[in-house]
Write a protein that binds this DNA or RNA. Structure first.
Length: 221
DNA sequence: ACCCAGGTGGCCC
DNA sequence: GGGCCACATGGG
């Protein structure tokens, strides 16, 4: 059982996910910040509000009053911190890159990642989501599901973000489309099946999963 | 009435 | 480095 085999199984089970759903690369970034510890349904409402008020562009957000921004993104939860985080990003973009994403994205992948991480409110996962789905450079995105699922499969011992990321990048071809699809499939599996309440009988990976095999009523089948 | 969601930063030890 | 907490809305 290796990473590509797991990928094929998930792809067969769930189909192509075609992430990230957004009209442009800036919308991906806004979504990446808003979806922190929030359901995508709620993020969609927030993004819809931003679109309806025609403020879903770097210049618009840059001049938008923060209180007004808070109200618009409210459905996505943590709306005060997220409003500040969005502001931090656009402030940074205008101060250092003339407000232009192309300029920021012309950095090397490593420099881009470092730059994003320097912004308050952008951590490892959000940075990688932006690098992969917005800038479209091959940086593997790790989330809580990734660690949970692959630890249970016995493929991961380390749980630190950068070690997990390194494991995936060392064991997969460096390919943007593969990275995009793989992370999306992991989230799909995590959302639907791999919760703390076991529904392991539904999981396409149950044969290989230590957790599924440790759950009494499943192991007997 | 819980529990969870496509995390992050701050603070403590 | 790890453990705990605040941040908050909406759906199951």
């Amino acid at each position: 059982m290796n990473l590509l085999e797991v990928y094929e199984i998930l792809l067969k089970k769930f189909g192509k996910q075609n992430w990230w759903p957004a009209d442009d690369s800036f919308e991906v970034i806004v979504g990446a910040i808003l979806t922190q510890q929030a359901s995508w349904k709620n993020v969609e409402k927030a993004i819809k509000n931003l679109k309806e008020h025609k403020v879903l562009k770097p210049e618009d957000l840059h001049r938008l009053d923060v209180k007004r921004l808070e109200m618009l993104i409210r459905p996505s939860g943590f709306y005060k911190v997220k409003a500040r985080r969005l502001k931090s990003f656009v402030d940074f973009l205008f101060e250092k890159y003339d407000g232009r994403l192309e300029k920021l994205f012309s950095l090397s992948m490593e420099d881009l990642r470092r730059e994003l991480l320097s912004i308050k409110g952008i951590g490892d996962e959000t940075a990688d989501s932006i690098v992969l789905y917005s800038a479209e450079k091959p940086s593997f995105v790790v989330d809580a599901y990734t660690i949970r699922i692959f630890s249970r499969l016995g493929l991961l011992k380390e749980k630190e973000y950068h070690k997990v990321k390194e494991f995936f990048e060392m064991n997969l071809p460096r390919d943007v489309e593969l990275y995009k699809e793989y992370h999306a499939l992991i989230v799909e599996l995590g959302k639907n099946i791999c919760k703390t309440k076991p529904r392991c009988f539904l999981c396409p990976l149950n044969k290989w999963c230590n957790y599924a095999n440790s759950v009494n009523d499943f192991a007997e089948r």
